[in-house]
Write a protein that binds this DNA or RNA. Structure first.
Lengths: 110, 110
DNA sequence: ATAACTTGCTACATATAGCGTAGCAAAGGA
DNA sequence: TCCTTTGCTACGCTATATGTAGCAAGTTAT
């Protein structure tokens, strides 16, 4: 299963694909997980450690939905981003740049 | 106040700017609010309506933090994105494209 | 002026989502 | 055999989000 058009999600009945995506990304830890996998596969516990020792309950829950969406896959080397997710984590790198810019400039200069 | 380096946030002690940003964006409705403001200013109640009638309690809470981060500003015409936030909502447009692509393709083709 | 709106926003009780500890079964190594 | 590591789950607790109702201030209409 994947992000499919025409299916209502939490907080939106429109069924537009972006809504499903915003919904998932707007859950706590989802963005962080994708971020922490940006440079290499991680075991469940290693990933958990990278995410400030987040609760395994939630980590597992997030991994499950991300796997359902074909954004994360598990193999012998651990959990890792799929090709699909790598498009997304490209955007996260942009986000990182923005955050750094903002942190180094006064409010009115960006 | 803004995204400032060296300050620990919920779920991260590193103080890296991206962490503060991921933390905020990972709260429910935050991404959606930025998305719904992408093409024009909205009044509190109009914005609420666009966000599937989300609770005013949370809407106000989100608006407060987004205003603190200088991503949203309120004037006579309503709430709207700042220059800073428009960089971010550019990324949301990319996200929209991705979501649409994925929705129209089988899992193994993206 | 006064009644009818709309504005941003808040109180409060309830429901949902996330947390943290402890521990399981399966697989691998010594 | 025993020790470790793997992914993952149970369960009791806290934090976060929801939804209804409504306030005070401002605008418009009568």
């Amino acid at each position: 299963m994947v992000i499919s058009a025409g299916k209502p999600v939490r907080g939106s009945t429109s069924g537009r694909p972006i809504m499903a995506l915003l919904d998932v990304l707007g859950q706590r830890w989802t963005l962080r997980i994708l971020w922490e996998l940006r440079d290499g596969r991680q075991s469940f516990r290693a990933l958990q450690a990278r995410c400030d020792a987040m609760s395994p309950t939630i980590l597992n829950q997030r991994l499950k939905t991300l796997r359902d969406m074909n954004l994360i896959a598990l193999d012998e080397a651990g959990f890792g981003l799929t090709a699909r997710a790598r498009q997304l984590s490209g955007l996260l790198l942009d986000l990182d740049r923005l955050a750094n810019d903002w942190a180094s400039l006064p409010d009115d200069q960006a």
